[in-house]
Simulated assay, not measured.
Amino acid sequence: MQAVNLLDFDLDGLAAYCEQLGEKRFRATQLFRWIHQKGASDFDQMSDLAKSLRSKLQGAAVIQGLSLISEHVSSDGTIKWLFDVGGGNAVESVYIPEDDRATLCVSSQAGCAVGCRFCSTGHQGFSRNLSTGEIIAQLWFAEHTLRKRFQTSERVISNVVMMGMGEPLQNYNALVPALRTMLDDHGYGLSRRRVTVSTSGVVPMIERLQHDCPVALAVSLHAPNDPLRDMLVPINRKYPIAELLEACSRYLQAAPRDFITFEYCMLDGVNDSDAHARELIALVKGRIPCKFNLIPFNPFPESGLHRSPLARVQAFARILADAGIVTTVRKTRGDDIDAACGQLAGEVQDRTNAQTRMRREPVVVPVSAIQRSARGGRPA
């Protein structure tokens, strides 16, 4: 019988598993803390667990993370990790240190089926959903690897954004237990305000998330009208803007923040005119509390698209801000290691050579190169 990976369970799931072993819930809580708060992967390390439980777990269960293929460190301190998820597939996670927070960008799928025109991950195509354990393993690895590297017992990751490879809400059943583990005080203890799910607009799942596990919501809008969004974000043909905004408005009834973040990738000559900005104002003002995050496009050859000039982005932002809409321009991070928004592609587009890449030794990066710009991570 195949061993159960305990990373696949949130606390309720782990309690149910322990009950099958004849154990009380408090034992599951102890075990959960060892796994997520202390980063333990060896049951023999878990000194306050009853020997009888440790004996039951041996052979029946494992704490199995993802195999690291490579690690790349940007000049700005951003770190990109590439993980093997089997079958010639790989996923990427990105650590982004800042002065007042440290964010981990987490993947939910190997590839993506949505196919947004400006996203290199979508250009790669879709391979499969990740399991709950594969999603949470990215945080488990990053948190405890960085604690050792920075020689700290304090929490390093203060924010998690489900903005890596994949559409999180198309992997809903695996996503929600992972979110619950991130939020659990016996796990990573993150605030609902500091965990963000980014979606291209899967309307039915936005409504389910509102009831099951409301966290901060970011919506990849990228266009002010349906014809343009149909071209840029194909899922809009199924869930047009009006339906999406209605779902967002309802979501706010349970959301930890009193606004929705709309992500807007700035594409030269495509969606960045003054007229587009005014359309956005007419679309949202007085209808839904929101903020806009304008994202510089990170070009890749197959897209045929170009980044809007900085002056155009600033003018666009000024129109929105003058209308009273909170607007920020995302600072580009990690673009020298292809870790910026829209650039994650898993390095496995050439399937014929994927297994060769999987056999590479992980890249070892000097600790000092990371520490110089990564001290900003703090507990929430």
Rank of each mutant, 00 (worst) to 15 (best):
D99C: 02
C116V: 04
S107D: 10
G111H: 04
A90D: 10
T103V: 03
E92S: 12
H72T: 14
D84H: 09
K80I: 12
K80L: 10
A90G: 15
V85L: 14
A110G: 08
L82F: 13
A113I: 03
Y95E: 01
G86V: 11
A113P: 14
T78Q: 05
D76P: 09
V91S: 11
I79N: 00
V91F: 06
D100W: 00
D84I: 05
G86Q: 06
D84T: 06
Y95G: 04
C116I: 04
I79P: 01
G88M: 07
W81P: 07
D84F: 08
G111S: 12
V94F: 10
G77W: 00
A90S: 15
C116M: 05
T103C: 09
A102H: 05
T103W: 02
G77Y: 00
D84W: 09
E98G: 10
G111W: 04
D100K: 07
G115Y: 02
G88C: 09
R101W: 07
F118L: 08
P97E: 05
L104A: 08
D76C: 09
C105E: 08
T121H: 06
V114N: 05
W81E: 05
V85D: 11
I96G: 03
A110K: 00
F118N: 04
G87D: 14
S75G: 14
V91H: 03
N89P: 01
S93F: 03
V73P: 00
G86H: 13
A110E: 01
L82R: 14
N89S: 15
V85A: 13
E98S: 11
G88P: 07
G88W: 12
V106P: 03
D100T: 14
L82W: 11
V94A: 08
S120A: 15
D100P: 00
W81A: 08
G86M: 12
D99S: 14
F118C: 07
S93R: 00
C116N: 02
C116Q: 02
V114T: 12
D76K: 02
N89K: 06
C119Y: 06
D76L: 05
C112T: 10
P97L: 09
S74F: 01
A113S: 15
N89W: 05
G115K: 01
I79E: 06
S120R: 08
T121Q: 06
V85R: 04
T78A: 14
R101N: 09
S75Q: 14
D84Q: 10
S108P: 05
V106T: 08
W81D: 06
A90E: 14
S75L: 12
S93Q: 00
S107I: 12
P97V: 11
G87Q: 11
D100I: 02
F118H: 05
A102Y: 03
S93T: 13
Y95C: 11
D76M: 05
C119F: 11
K80T: 10
W81R: 09
E98Y: 01
F83Y: 15
V73Q: 10
G88A: 12
Y95H: 11
T121S: 14
E92C: 13
C116E: 03
C116T: 03
G77P: 04
S120L: 13
G87N: 12
V91G: 11
F118S: 03
Q109W: 06
I79A: 13
R117N: 10
V91W: 01
C112F: 13
N89A: 15
